[in-house]
Simulated scan of single mutants.
Amino acid sequence: MILLRKLLFPFAILYGFVTSVRNYLYDKGILKSYSFDIPVIAVGNLSVGGTGKTPQIEYLIRLLSPNYKVATLSRGYKRKSEGFILADANANAAMLGDEPFQYYRKFPQIQVAVDADRRNGITQLLAQKDKPEVILLDDAFQHRKVKAGFYILLTAYDELFCDDYLLPTGNLRESRNGAKRANMIIVTKCPPNIPDLAQENIKKKIGLDMPIFFSFVDYDDKVYNQSSSLEVAKVKLQEKLLLAGIAKPKPFFDYLQSDNDVVMTFADHHHFTESDILNIKSQAIDTIIVTTEKDFVRLEAAIFGAQLYYLPIKSKLIKHSDTFDQIILNYVGTCTRNG
């Protein structure tokens, strides 16, 4: 696979040329970007998947929703619907996509919308009688048709964008220079005890004059289903089926797995078929199933009751969380007053 990617390097050059021309046209105003008179925060990355956008969006929801009417807008990756949809009591994961449905289930105080056309999605949200005061754009760093007021770029600790290459040789969606559009960078999925020197070395490697923060994935000490919870310490000791359909499931498995567990891995955002469900149930006779929160919203209708559990996660900043929060709150507060 690595050899094949190296052989495809000429296509990476071509891909880089195309994306650079597109960005140049937007930068010069030849292709029009649309801005809006309310705070719009875009969270995204330069690489393909697995940088922790969902927990970072949830961090911003927790920070902002006590004082502002917050809406999230996603494209609704792999959803079985089209156009603009605002989540309501009839929503499900197939309609919205797993991540937006997760937001809707966890945060009933916010509005959750999906639309591949972010400009249209924002316009639709602002046309409501009860319109939001802040909009969080999920995975919209390359969506240049909308000009957000604030960009948060995520890059994973073990796959820094500055060490990567363009598709198909590497995993970058656009040139590393795209990072200059960000207002801040968060290095995600760090070891919780990453030394200060290692943080400084990464900042030097990135080489950009902007705030750079470091975060880690904080796993809950319980797993949950619709009606109960179990202590992770006890779950680790019992036989179980661990199941994940996310981009990089290894940390999830490492956190929970014991020697006799059955482990099942599916592609990111996998749509579970009837055959998949039958296979999962046959592998989990008389045992519990523990999955990710994102997979749980797609599986709970088919595997319900006391058998299926999920493990929540949160994004936590290693240092300077007060500074991070204040930067976001200052942007939102200033933009709201100006608006």
Rank of each mutant, 00 (worst) to 15 (best):
A233Y: 00
I289P: 02
H271P: 11
L311E: 08
D276H: 10
L311M: 06
H270E: 11
L308P: 00
Y309S: 13
F253C: 09
R298Y: 01
D286T: 04
A284V: 15
K234D: 14
S258E: 09
I277V: 15
D261S: 10
F252K: 03
L299Q: 05
I289H: 07
E274A: 10
N260H: 11
L317R: 06
V263T: 15
E274N: 09
L256V: 03
I288G: 10
F296G: 01
Q307S: 08
I303A: 05
K248R: 11
A301W: 00
I289W: 06
S282T: 11
Y310Q: 07
F252M: 04
R298P: 00
L308W: 00
L311P: 05
A301S: 11
Q257W: 01
V290K: 01
F266M: 11
A306E: 14
T265D: 14
D295H: 02
Y310H: 14
N279V: 00
N260Q: 14
L243E: 04
I313W: 01
D259Q: 15
P312I: 09
M264E: 11
I289C: 07
A267M: 14
A301Q: 08
F304P: 00
H271C: 06
L241V: 12
I289R: 09
K240M: 14
E239Y: 00
L242Y: 03
N260C: 12
I288V: 07
E293C: 14
Y255L: 07
K236W: 05
I285D: 12
I246K: 03
G305A: 09
A247Q: 12
D286C: 06
F266S: 15
D295G: 13
D268T: 05
T291N: 07
I313M: 03
L237Y: 00
S282Q: 15
Q238A: 14
K319L: 05
F304K: 07
H269G: 10
L241C: 05
Q257L: 03
G245A: 13
A302L: 04
N279T: 10
T265R: 15
Q307D: 14
T287F: 07
I280G: 08
D286A: 13
T273A: 02
M264V: 13
T291G: 13
F296V: 02
D254K: 09
K236A: 06
F296Q: 04
Q238T: 08
K248L: 04
A247H: 02
A306Y: 02
L241Q: 05
K240L: 14
S315Q: 07
T287I: 10
V235P: 01
L256H: 07
P251W: 02
I318A: 06
N279Y: 14
T265W: 10
L299G: 02
K314V: 02
P312R: 12
T291V: 06
P312F: 09
D276W: 00
F252C: 06
V263Y: 08
K248F: 06
N260S: 15
I277P: 05
V263H: 10
L256E: 04
T287L: 08
I288N: 09
I277N: 08
Y309R: 12
K294N: 11
F304T: 13
K316E: 07
S315D: 11
K240I: 15
